[in-house]
Design a protein around this nucleic acid. Sequence first.
DNA 1: ATGGTAGTAGTACTA
Length: 265
Amino acid sequence: MPMKIATWNINGVKARIDNLLHWLEEAQPDIACLQEIKSVDGLFPRGPIEALGYYVETHGQKGFNGVAILSKLRFDEVNRGLSGDDEDAQARFIEGVFSTDKGALRVVSLYLPNGNPVDTEKFPYKLSWMERLERWAQDRLALEEPLVLAGDYNVIPEPEDAKNPEAWVGDALFRPESRAAFRKFSHLGFTDALRATTQEDGIYTFWDYQAGAWQKNNGIRIDHLMLSPEAADRLSATSVAKHTRAWEKPSDHVPVIAELSLGAA
DNA sequence: ATGGTAGTAGTACTA
């Protein structure tokens, strides 16, 4: 049975716990990467998630940001925080290492900075964070292991990844600098899991709460699973759990799932 | 339509 690895920006784990539990039972991901948990580690509602058979590792902070990895596989190793800037206190990165029947598997849950407004320090912070991630990823590629960089990248890679691309011109999610930085992962050898399995347009992972964006299908694709060559070799399928956006009290993002031909150790 | 909606934590902030 393939291993299901998912990413979902849940926009507040406390407000979303019922939806999260429902989706875990329904989708049965082996590893689920969460972003925007908006919780400190001590207040993360781990009990009901552990009751479903998941190990839980979090990297949270008060009020906003925060990432987590839920896994049916035991964690061999956990690393919190992205290297390259000791002054950066924002909780946006957690890495888990697991044992599979094919050896080590590394999975990162990342929440890339939004970067708006672009005329503030937020935009250079986004670009420098992307450079740090690229340096980190380049180091990891030398291991020649299956590695999945899963998360909310806050980048619309191509015009085809937005219902109304013209509305995003100038936005930090669609600025040429952001898109170029995202392309560097492809140049390094990473594969966009969704694009590797479909050329279909109109696949989105985020619809704003405002202005009836969901009802108008005014979405964008900004949640991505980027696969190292060793992970891409084993990619068998991807899917987007679009139906969760229509649930009561939805996140503004939906889960994206990649299936890899890997088994438990 | 320089608004609109939502989460966290308890009044701005982030997106």
